[in-house]
Write a protein that binds this DNA or RNA. Structure first.
Lengths: 234, 234
DNA sequence: ATTCGTTCGTGACTGAAGTCACAAGACCGG
DNA sequence: CCGGTCTTGTGACTTCAGTCACGAACGAAT
């Protein structure tokens, strides 16, 4: 039987694999053939704890050597393979505004095998133009393009109001993986993977914590004054 | 005493508050004065489960009415306040490449009170230019600007190699909240909040799941053929 | 060959987040 | 005023992620 141990890899681990991958690539590039690396060192580079690195990597299989560490090249290969990055993923961007353009020219995508291969929009003044040697086509041509060019990942970079509709069209064309940059909740059938990146949510989280430390500071300040006054009064 | 119940709000809850906020704003805008909304409805709009909504909101205080729901306006106010969005946060962007520009012109920031108020870079051909009525200044002028214009949030949109250094300069200027868009791990002192948005990590996670469903599909296919052949052979 | 130092792999534990289910409270109609 | 119908707020439980600590395995050196 095709061996399928395939322990289910926890979501949290999957989310960290790209970070390990990046760290390993940096090292491999810098030092040519570093050879081997300990979980401790990888942990430092990835900004996490060593036990977590070991546990994460153990889900992929036993690729380390006790007393030595992990072979950088081999580990690189394994992570790349498990993340499905040994193949290219032809990717389409819908919505060619500022954000869409920035994404289309983002180095980080092509470096990892995500070839931005098609751009779509609906605005008349954008459709028909070119961006980075790619034509911006009308969204109505989506289906044809998906079939002909085997696009398999869709990126939504439209205004929030259009996000749900665009997602439905992507799903309708058979796309199973969607990355949503529009600040809107988008629902898709259970066999489609959707992930979101919300630029402003992260800022709002920062705001929460900053606001709170300030609030604490001012409260402490107020208490101090109160104490001082009652002391003076007593 | 200044009442500070301030139950510690779980991180996961903080991360969802902006989503609720957005949903409520949409509703309030659309229906003028909807009045009230149940946890069920808010859950649907936010794409989560109703019990979770109630528990999340209960951390802010008991702002709902049993048998009725939550008063939209009041809840909006409370969430806005707890997220620290009643005030503006003067924000600086370091790195004015494609991504930096897209962020500088991103509507979602200004809508929530994050005023992009200063742009910095180091490239000679960029420093001195203008973008969206803001001058791009040299990073060396950072400290002065932070002090004079009370900048309090820094956004890193540089290449990964410069991210750590830029972060250190931001910290050095007294900035306590940093949002990092560069694909690199950045370390800061414990009293500084840093959050990261990594555009390509999310794509890699999608790739993982897509790759896996394909792997399963091909394995199943292989098994089917094997079965068919052995059946034919028998 | 044996010992020693190192580092992985993992079982056991701790803690956080998510889910369920129900009592408590609010409104309504008669 | 009272029973019926809602919907919240929350304690109890389940599940998932993170951490610790230690045995197992490897290389090196004597």
């Amino acid at each position: 039987m095709t061996d399928m141990p395939e322990r289910q890899i926890p979501e949290a681990t999957v989310a960290r694999l790209p970070v390990y991958l990046r760290a390993l690539l940096d090292v491999a590039e810098r030092s040519g053939d570093e050879g081997t690396m300990s979980s401790e060192e990888l942990a430092r580079l990835a900004g996490v704890n060593a036990a977590k690195v070991r546990k994460d990597l153990s889900y992929l299989g036993s690729y380390g050597t006790r007393g030595v560490g992990y072979d950088v090249k081999h580990l690189l290969y394994q992570i790349t393979r498990d993340l499905g990055l040994t193949q290219d993923w032809p990717t389409a961007i819908v919505g060619v505004g500022n954000l869409g353009k920035a994404l289309a020219s983002y180095k980080g995508f092509s470096e990892r095998g995500f070839r931005i291969q098609a751009l779509f929009d609906v605005a008349e003044d954008i459709v028909g133009t070119e961006f980075g040697s790619l034509p911006v086509r009308h969204l109505d041509e989506l289906k044809e393009a998906v079939v002909n060019e085997s696009l398999c990942i869709g990126i939504i970079a439209t205004p929030p109001a259009s996000a749900q509709e665009v997602a439905e069209r992507l799903v309708d064309c058979g796309i199973k993986s969607i990355l949503n940059f529009a600040p809107a909740v988008v629902n898709v059938p259970p066999d489609v993977q959707i992930r979101k990146v919300d630029l402003s949510i992260e800022l709002q989280i920062l705001s929460f914590y900053q606001q709170r430390t300030q609030a604490v500071a001012t409260a402490r300040e107020a208490n101090r004054r109160l104490a001082a006054r009652s002391e003076g009064g007593a």
